[in-house]
């Protein structure tokens, strides 16, 4: 059973196609992330699913409803954390939670929610006396107060300091453990890597890649980088050139460090270490780096922009 299905969704603002033929599904209890640079269309997609925005074409279902026409009973089952939404400055945190909670048919206890977002002790403070990060936590708390089945989090940790982000991640993982389906948008790679079950990378209103964070990494064209030094070896000597020419990857020399960009690190490492052992030498400072999701992501959005970015730019 899918909590969310989106099929061939499009949305234009004037001549700008903000969303251009988007399709994805989210299973119940899954954390799904839309990852992309600013202006990729993430918020537009989320706001269409929330019912805040109309779509041009395509089919959208959340909890079996069409958000474009669904009413009160639909919004009763979802939680929304907008990228930007005001909180009544006249109210204390607790008053806001009690007031908004009263609109829902089912709600989490206020103290539990305060605890969940790390605002215990600040319940009686007026919202305009909170810091930006604390106010963002109130946003999260207001998204959670109605005990939602599907939670929309539009860039929930933008503007957080590192410890607040960690805390928010723990909180979101806690929600996931409770079985809440979560649609998350982010432009933080590390966030998505930690939180998401599946990721769709969105560029210019299209999905350019989709999968689990691990799949995305594995599928990527980014190559493993092997770095090492050969002291006392002339890099231009015949045997060295022959050996390096036999590798699968491409080799370059930078400040005395050899860098091998390879799609087959096992073979290349075996050739390199074998060669070094035969000669009784050492590969000094040997280092093998697999691409992070960040590298993958940069490749993806670099490629789709047709820029010179991505894996290819790294070999010399």
């Amino acid at each position: 059973m899918f909590a969310v299905t989106v099929n061939d969704l499009t949305k234009s603002y004037g001549f700008v196609k903000a969303v251009n033929g988007l399709s994805f599904t989210i299973e119940e209890g899954e954390v799904f992330a839309l990852l992309g640079p600013n202006g990729a269309g993430k918020s537009t997609v989320v706001e269409i699913l929330e019912g805040h925005r109309t779509r041009d074409t395509g089919e959208v279902r959340v909890l079996g409803r069409d958000p474009g026409t669904a009413g009160q009973e639909y919004r009763d089952r979802i939680g929304i954390v907008l990228q930007e939404a005001g909180i009544e400055r006249e109210l204390t945190v607790r008053e806001a939670l009690v007031h908004y909670g009263a609109c829902y048919s089912r709600r989490r206890p206020v103290d539990e929610v305060l605890d969940l977002v790390g605002l215990n002790g600040l319940g009686d403070r007026r919202t305009h006396r909170l810091s930006g990060g604390q106010r963002r936590r109130v946003d999260l708390a207001l998204g959670l107060i109605g005990d939602p089945e599907v939670l929309f989090l539009d860039e929930p940790t933008t503007g957080f300091d590192p410890s607040a982000r960690r805390h928010a991640w723990e909180m979101i993982e806690g929600l996931k453990a409770l079985g809440t389906t979560i649609l998350l948008t982010s432009h933080y790679m590390d966030e998505v890597q930690v939180l998401a079950d599946r990721v769709a990378v969105l560029v210019e209103g299209r999905i350019v890649s989709e999968g689990t964070p691990a799949e995305l990494r594995g599928r990527a064209e980014s190559e493993t980088m092997i770095r090492f030094r050969f002291p006392e070896v002339d890099p231009s000597s015949g045997p060295v050139v022959d050996m390096l020419g036999g590798l699968v990857g491409r080799t370059s020399l930078r400040n005395g460090v050899f860098e091998v960009c390879t799609v087959d690190p096992t073979t290349d490492l075996s050739l390199l270490t074998g060669w070094a052992l035969e000669r009784g030498g050492q590969l000094e400072g040997l280092e093998v780096t697999t691409p992070t999701l960040e590298d993958v992501y940069l490749d993806l959005i670099g490629d789709s922009h047709g820029a010179a970015g991505g894996a290819g730019s790294r070999d010399v």
């Binding site: 919004r75 929304i80 005001g86 609109c103």
Partner: peptide, 8 residues
């Protein structure tokens, strides 16, 4: 906008 997203 926040209010519109609630079941109120």
């Amino acid at each position: 906008k926040r209010i519109r997203g609630t079941p109120l």
